[in-house]
Write a protein that binds this DNA or RNA. Structure first.
Length: 257
DNA sequence: AAAGCAGACAACCGCCGCAGT
DNA sequence: CACTGCGGCGGTTGTCTGCTT
């Protein structure tokens, strides 16, 4: 019954990391690189669960982390991405260099939720508070910030009055199919012989969100694609300038200019 | 000055999907 | 094709810190 624990709990430390543990972890990863988290603690001489090491590295020790306050621009980006993606923190983090999913999740729960509420917006649905979720298609355009994105999702088709997974997939647009996958806005100059990146890699580096039934090799996650019956593919460009934000070094090369 | 409270953030837990066998 | 292990993700909890009374 149930799966075996990821590690030997009896001999692992829990709680806050000490400086020495951090140093060991950093030194080990610098020497050997990331990967094989399960065996890493032993190899690095840490009495920690591999998952714990991974989390510590990703959320705190990675050298490319910003670890500074979120800017207004990042705030708006997060809000916009959340409106599209829901609680897909890793996807959102993939679009915010130097930010981690955990950081964004925490920031969302502590700051942005309140910010949206103070604006009179439901942080879950990104609709004005007090508007019923069904048939709220028209109401969804009340908020200025959402106009651009919502207008990008052309239809407010009523047939998918989704009642599935309301937490992670906001039902903006009155039932638009948020069957999400990511397409690459710009192909890397094929540096690697590997035919396709992993889904996470693609998601982390991508700039486009594909709504509907992707016909590319990038497919949706099974969980999310389960409800999809759409045969039409709609791509929403998430390049920063398309989101109405400037200062991003990313250039939209989606071709849909 | 002390106690209580709320906010912020780090870390843990359990589940899921993918890849390998 | 089924099974298993691992990595990753999202939700939740625990703890620390600053603020208010």
């Amino acid at each position: 019954m149930g799966r075996s624990p990821c590690c030997e709990k009896a001999h692992t430390n829990k709680g806050a990391w000490t400086k020495e543990e951090d140093q060991r972890l950093v030194a080990y990863i610098k020497a050997h690189g990331e990967g094989c988290w399960r065996s890493l603690p032993k190899a690095a001489g840490l009495l920690r669960c591999g998952k714990s090491c991974r989390l510590r590295w990703i959320n705190y020790l990675r050298p490319d982390l910003k670890r500074s306050n979120f800017t207004e621009e990042e705030d708006e980006l997060i809000i916009r991405f959340h409106g599209l993606l829901g609680n897909k923190w890793s996807l959102i983090a993939g679009r915010l260099p130097g930010r981690t999913d955990n950081e964004i999740k925490n920031y969302w729960n502590t700051h942005i939720k309140r910010k949206l509420l103070s604006r009179g917006i439901d942080p879950k649905t990104h609709r004005p508070l007090g508007v019923s979720t069904s048939g709220a298609c028209a109401a969804s355009s009340h908020h200025q910030d959402q106009d651009q994105l919502l207008s990008a999702r052309s239809s407010c088709s009523p047939e998918t009055s989704g009642d599935d997974d309301s937490a992670s997939a906001p039902h903006d647009g009155g039932g638009i199919d948020l069957n999400l996958s990511i397409s690459l806005p710009r192909q890397p100059p094929s540096p690697s012989p590997s035919p396709l990146p992993t889904r996470q890699e693609a998601e982390a580096t991508s700039g486009g969100v594909v709504l509907g039934d992707a016909n590319s090799s990038e497919t949706t996650t099974p969980k999310e694609s389960g409800t999809s019956s759409s045969s039409e593919r709609k791509t929403i460009c998430l390049c920063l300038n398309r989101l109405g934000l400037q200062g991003a070094d990313e250039r939209c090369t989606c071709g849909d200019t």
